[in-house]
Design a protein around this nucleic acid. Structure first.
Lengths: 269, 269
DNA sequence: GCAAAAGTGTTGGTAGTACACCCATGG
DNA sequence: CCATGGGTGTACTACCAACACTTTTGC
């Protein structure tokens, strides 16, 4: 039986596989060239050493002995992009014997993260950090193409039955903005009328008394995320905390965009 | 895992976290005492060394350098119970700094498995291996109570939208037997008429021309699992192989890499 | 015949889809 | 005025839960 086996017979050969933590970071971006429809983008880092030197790879690094797994993911994410994740979830552990090199056995615990779109536009880029559209990636190092594909699949699947879309948005948003997020991730257009009813019926969103002005049409109402509902059901797992996770309090006011407050105008309609 | 999460196996400072693979093994069993309704059971092993000596724990062990993750799960599963999994899927990687002892940092990649009920009744038991009803467990070693809770949640959630229930059954089965599996896992009764229509409409099952006789009532038709449909959708991940999995085709060659270390310093910045 | 489970039919509620239509603003 | 998206109403469909009802065996 397994508990009687003892593996430490070999003295100085590596007894255990190496453990790394990587993160697939998603943000929505509007490609200035192709058009105005936002799409899913992600940052990659260029490898500066063998193997796969010069290839693009997921940001990550070895797990420090004194940090939890989500912490390591958030740390490497921040080191790479300067961003703080609004949503962070474990994706999968990749550990095939031959996914790295013959001499090395590396098991990667991969997280996926969502960052706000407006923050992503301020994200640091450099010689060795670049953003790519998620559905048009070059050939990456290791098995990272497969990992990104899987993360994208999870993002799209989860978008349909959870509320993670809010992680892309700011404090307040219009239903059209929320719908744009869904459309960008799912890659297809949604009926505005039905989308509105579905969201309003789910109770995950709270109407404010503010409206977004400056458009060429009727000003849309601004909504706020209902903080009493978790972004995604993790089952019996304790809610994951990472260093940049905001404690569940009332939020600061950072109204982006031109909003007009109509506090004294009575109820609209 | 019982041997791997053992702290005194080290003589020197660890450079990396230890890596273990554990498995939550589910089978359906009928408790001879309480009644005839089958319930979810799982095997545990008793720890024979510190920490948590004497406590029950999930079967598992350290990851060998030359085996893939699902292989390690199936191996320790077989070592413990003598059984072969009909379904095997990665559950989660648990890696909190303080989940073992202060001196030890162990990251456990946990799988969950389903075994056939009739095989489970022949499973080996011993002084240090015992089966427990899944919803009435003692206090386990490490964070294994949480792990089992999470695995149970995944099993129940997945039962509703996938076909994993077939993993509990034999080659042919009646729809009542299949319904019994669902009822045992979900913990509630299902309408036989609606269940029949749902299953038949899903196309996951093929009617045979055989009937089960010897009952006190009208003989039910025997069905067979439709092998052209996967038990569960794993997205873009390649279908997981483990040593006892029936081999339909040859393996793909997933050669990557050529030299040194992976993700050592993934970020360059 | 009777009990018991197999198997069929019917109905009502609910959720998703398609689409017609009105509303309120900027220009 | 018009154009544009915000927002409402409504019919249609598909699926699911509930449950009445018929069928076929063992005893």
């Amino acid at each position: 039986m397994s508990s009687s086996e003892n593996p430490e017979a070999r003295a100085h050969e590596p007894v255990s596989a190496l453990l790394a933590v990587s993160t697939v970071i998603f943000a929505l971006r509007t490609d200035e060239q192709t058009g105005d429809v936002p799409q899913v983008w992600l940052p990659l880092v260029r490898r500066i050493r063998s193997p796969f030197e010069g290839r693009w790879a997921l940001p990550g690094g070895p797990l420090h002995l004194d940090e939890d797994l989500p912490f390591a993911a958030a740390r490497t994410l921040h080191d790479t992009t300067g961003l703080r994740p609004r949503y962070l979830e474990q994706l999968y552990a990749f550990g095939d014997v031959r996914r790295s090199t013959a001499a090395d056995r590396v098991v990667s615990i991969v997280y996926w993260a969502l960052v706000r779109s407006d923050e992503a536009s301020r994200a640091s880029v450099g010689e060795n950090v670049r953003w790519f559209p998620a559905d048009d990636l070059p050939e990456l190092a290791f098995d990272h193409n497969l990992i990104v594909d899987y993360a994208l699949w999870r993002l799209r699947t989860k978008m349909e039955y959870s509320r993670i879309a809010h992680a892309f948005l700011g404090e307040t948003f219009t239903l059209a903005q929320l719908r744009e997020v869904h459309e960008a991730v799912l890659g297809r257009a949604l009926d505005p009328a039905n989308f509105r009813r579905t969201i309003e019926g789910s109770g995950t969103v709270v109407a404010t008394d503010q409206y977004l002005t400056g458009t060429r049409h009727r000003p849309p109402r601004l909504y706020r995320y209902n903080g009493s509902i978790d972004l995604a059901d993790q089952g019996p797992l304790p809610r994951q905390r990472h260093p940049f996770d905001a404690p569940p309090t009332a939020t600061g006011s950072t109204a982006t965009g031109s909003t007009s407050s109509e506090e004294d105008e009575g109820h609209a309609k």
